[in-house]
């Protein structure tokens, strides 16, 4: 058989295959429509402002963290090497190490900062992920597709905020109260704060915002009239490691009504 004949065979087989497929096609159900929920909250760039004054006591952060972790079935693993956390407490000198100064006020030094994924504008984790398992939604939220994650942990090396956790061990035995309305994660994938996209999709604000008692302001950074923008206009806010150019979408307002640091 020369090459032309061979190509003919391939073509014939292909056409035959298509005919067969077409003939059988009525056997499948027509593709159904899939849409967004009409109630879904929408924005161009979701962001948060965290008012540290509302987190004076460690319990304030703990309450938010518990709510988030319980809601999302985040396991409570004691071993710090394997722990999984979406939002948690850090002090100033670790959360903002680059701003450290010898003469920092004792008050700021001992302040508690809730830290979480910064949902960067230029997320390094998204840039390095080899499978698009982590990606940035059009509304600015950086989310994980756990089904696609291969567990290479490149995103963890790339994230300068330590916001990502890897499921080194099976998380399920470490989940205290299971929220049956939300899935767990499989062993071997990376996870992190999702800014509660599942809630936004239904028209609800993130759970941390809801339980923060006003400590976390949530809104569209792109919208000059949004609450977050209002707060940022009237307060001095800092972001973690802004010098790295990642463009964190989580702002910290220190002092609230008081004068900023």
């Amino acid at each position: 058989m020369n090459r032309r004949d061979f190509l003919k065979v391939i073509a014939a087989a292909g056409i035959g295959g298509i005919v067969v497929m077409e003939g059988l096609d009525d056997f499948r159900v027509e593709a159904a429509e899939m849409n967004k929920d009409s109630n879904a909250l929408q924005a161009k760039h979701w962001g948060m402002v965290i008012d540290i004054s509302k987190f004076q006591k460690p319990e304030d952060i703990q309450r938010v963290a518990n709510a988030c972790h319980q809601y999302h079935n985040v396991p409570d693993i004691k071993d710090p090497k394997h722990e999984v956390k979406w939002i948690w407490k850090e002090d100033f000198e670790h959360a903002f190490a680059e701003m450290e100064s010898k003469y920092l006020s004792e008050k700021i030094k001992t302040m508690n900062f809730p830290v979480l994924c910064n949902h960067c504008e230029e997320p390094m984790c998204v840039r390095v992920c080899p499978t698009k398992a982590t990606f940035k939604r059009p509304d600015g939220i950086v989310v994980m597709d756990y089904h696609r994650c291969i567990g290479c942990r490149y995103c963890m090396a790339g994230c300068p905020y330590g916001a990502r956790s890897f499921n080194f061990i099976d998380p399920r035995p470490h989940i205290g109260m299971m929220n049956h309305d939300y899935p767990t994660r499989a062993i071997g994938v990376v996870e992190k704060c999702t800014m509660c996209v599942e809630r936004l999709n239904k028209g609800l604000k993130p759970i941390c915002v809801e339980v923060s008692r006003g400590g976390i302001i949530f809104g569209d950074l792109n919208d000059p009239n949004s609450e977050v923008r209002k707060v940022l206009r009237s307060n001095f806010a800092i972001r973690r490691k802004a010098e790295l150019g990642t463009g964190p979408s989580v702002y910290y307002v220190i002092g609230g009504d008081e004068e900023g640091a």
Binding site: V29, E30, A32, E33, M34, N35, K36, D37, S38, A40, F135, R137, D139, V143, D145, H147, H180, D181, Y182, P183, V197, N201, K202
Partner: peptide
């Protein structure tokens, strides 16, 4: 997960949330 579409319109026109849970 990837598109943020959560509502399924079945062939009978009924709407459902696309969620196992």
């Amino acid at each position: 997960v990837r598109e943020g579409n959560t509502v399924y319109t079945s062939s009978s026109g009924q709407k459902y949330e696309m969620s196992l849970e």
